[in-house]
Computed example of a mutant assay.
Amino acid sequence: MPENSASIASFWDAHAASFDEEADHGLRDPGVRAAWAERLRSWMPASPADVLDLGCGTGSLSLVLAEQGHRPVGVDLAPLMIEQARRKLAKAGFDAPMMVGDASDPPARAGTSFDVILSRHLLWTLPDPQEALRRWAGLLRPGGRLVLVEGRWASAGSGQERSREGEPPMPWMGGVEAERLLAALRPLVGTIRVDPLPDPALWGRAVQDERYAVVAFA
Rank of each mutant, 00 (worst) to 15 (best):
P48A: 08
L89A: 07
E21W: 12
W12V: 11
F19N: 04
R28E: 07
N4G: 06
S47T: 10
V32L: 04
L118Y: 10
G59V: 07
M99A: 07
L77Y: 08
P106K: 13
F11E: 12
I8P: 01
A66W: 01
E21F: 07
L123E: 08
G111P: 04
I117K: 00
G74Y: 07
A49K: 05
G74M: 08
A23E: 07
S18E: 14
V100N: 12
I82L: 12
D115Q: 14
A35Y: 11
G101S: 13
A132Q: 04
M81T: 01
P2M: 06
L61M: 13
A37E: 09
S60K: 01
W124Q: 03
C56I: 15
A103K: 05
A49W: 04
F114C: 03
D50C: 02
M99D: 06
D50K: 02
L89Q: 05
Q84I: 02
F19C: 06
A96N: 03
L77S: 11
E3V: 02
W36A: 02
A14F: 05
P72E: 03
R109L: 03
A110H: 09
P45L: 00
L77P: 10
A34K: 15
S5Y: 08
P106A: 11
R86Q: 15
G59P: 05
T125R: 10
E22G: 01
L80P: 06
A6E: 14
A49N: 04
E38V: 13
L126N: 00
A17N: 09
T58C: 05
L122I: 13
L126M: 13
L40G: 08
H121F: 05
P107H: 08
A90F: 06
L77R: 12
E22P: 00
D115A: 09
L123M: 12
V64K: 00
R109N: 11
R120W: 12
Q68Y: 02
L133R: 00
R134Y: 01
D128Y: 04
S7M: 13
W36I: 06
Q84H: 15
A9K: 11
Q68E: 12
H25G: 01
S113M: 08
R33F: 09
E3G: 03
R87L: 07
D13W: 13
L54F: 12
G93M: 11
L123I: 12
P30E: 06
V73D: 01
V64L: 12
Q68T: 02
D53G: 02
S113E: 14
A49Q: 00
L54I: 14
E21K: 14
